[in-house]
C-alpha cells in the first residue's frame, strides 16, 4: 500500500507535501515531489486527490496481493473521476458525484 509520484507530470506545487497526514512527501532538490519512506503510507489517498496534475497514484503492495494497478483521480466540480490503470495498460474509470450520498 503506497503511492508513487510521476516525476515528469509533477509540477512541484508542494500541495501533496502539505496534505499528507504522515508528512511523508517532500520536494527534492529539483523541485519534484518524492516519498522517501513509501512503507509508511496509510493509503488514505489524500495526496492523490490533492494533486491537480494527477501525478500521484495509489497502488497496493505486492505483499497484500497488489497486481500493479494504479489509481488516480481527476476532479471536475463536484465529480471525482477515478481511474484505475491496470498492469496490462487498460484503464477503467469510475465517476463519483460528490452530491450523492452513499446508499449502503
Amino acid at each position: 500500500m503506497s503511492i508513487e509520484v510521476d516525476r515528469a507530470a509533477c509540477t512541484g506545487c508542494g500541495r501533496c507535501a502539505d496534505i499528507c497526514p504522515g508528512s511523508l512527501l517532500a520536494l527534492d532538490e529539483s523541485g519534484a515531489a518524492f516519498i522517501a519512506r513509501p512503507e509508511r503510507c496509510w493509503g488514505c489517498a489524500s495526496c492523490v486527490k490533492e494533486c491537480a496534475a494527477q501525478a500521484i497514484a495509489l497502488y497496493l503492495g505486492e505483499d497484500i496481493g497488489g497486481l500493479g494497478g494504479r489509481l488516480t483521480v481527476r476532479r471536475d466540480g463536484p465529480l471525482l473521476h477515478w481511474a484505475v490503470r491496470l498492469a496490462g495498460g487498460e484503464t477503467k474509470v469510475i465517476t463519483v458525484d460528490g452530491r450523492d450520498a452513499n446508499r449502503y
Binding site: 489517498a45 497496493l60 477515478w82 452513499n102
Partner: peptide
C-alpha cells in the same frame, strides 16, 4: 462507496 472512504478496496476489486 468505497472510493469515498477506503479507495484501496475499490482498487483491489477493479484490478
Amino acid at each position: 462507496a468505497y472510493l469515498n472512504m477506503a479507495p484501496s478496496q475499490t482498487l483491489r476489486w477493479v484490478e
